[in-house]
Amino acid sequence: MSFEWEWFPKLAEGLPLTLQITFSCIAIGIVLGVLLALGRVYGPRFLRGICIVYIQFFRGTPLLVQLFIVYNGLPNLGITLTALQSGILALGLNTAAYQAEYFRGAIQAVRGGQMLAARSLGMSLPQAIRYAILPQAFRLVLPAWSNEFILMLKYSSIVFTVTLLDLMGKAKRLSARDSRSFEVFLVAALFYLVLVFVATMLLRLLENRVRIPGLGAPSQHR
């Protein structure tokens, strides 16, 4: 086996895209996930139904199929997105469905008395959700959410299938021109190991910072 030092900077060129896609889809996922969770818990029946159908579809089908639907399928309906837009959108819609379920679980784990207490102070329902329920749900959901972040970091690698040159795309391109494909992917694997390690550490730091006594179990993921 032999390696080239120049592979490192070449693969590193893909890092910004990998990070951009990860952060963007997580952001979409949080906003949409919270809305879906609220819709599922507090919404009227028809809205609850819509949320459930959405969540079931995106959790029941492969992410790669979803990506192709957005990138190759939507043009059939007259919606054409760039590869980057497709990647961010597909990953974002997907993680939203999972995050919605985590948030839903967390919202329901906040004890019912908290809602009563908030309403007894004269808070409206939206106020009670915003000031009493959500701040607690966010903390309860943090470990699951950290996990989700790591998963999306790894899943972002699928965007190379729609021609994007993220870390994975760069590795694929490099390996096509070099007979040492195995070694190239070993280096790519090393990049992902470091990325995941750093992300895990930072997320753990975040969890410790926002931890409040009596709210949620201490972080448990590796």
Partner: peptide, 9 residues
């Protein structure tokens, strides 16, 4: 920690 696609390759 390694994405499935990288593992497959």
């Amino acid at each position: 920690s390694i994405p499935a696609l990288v593992l497959i390759f």
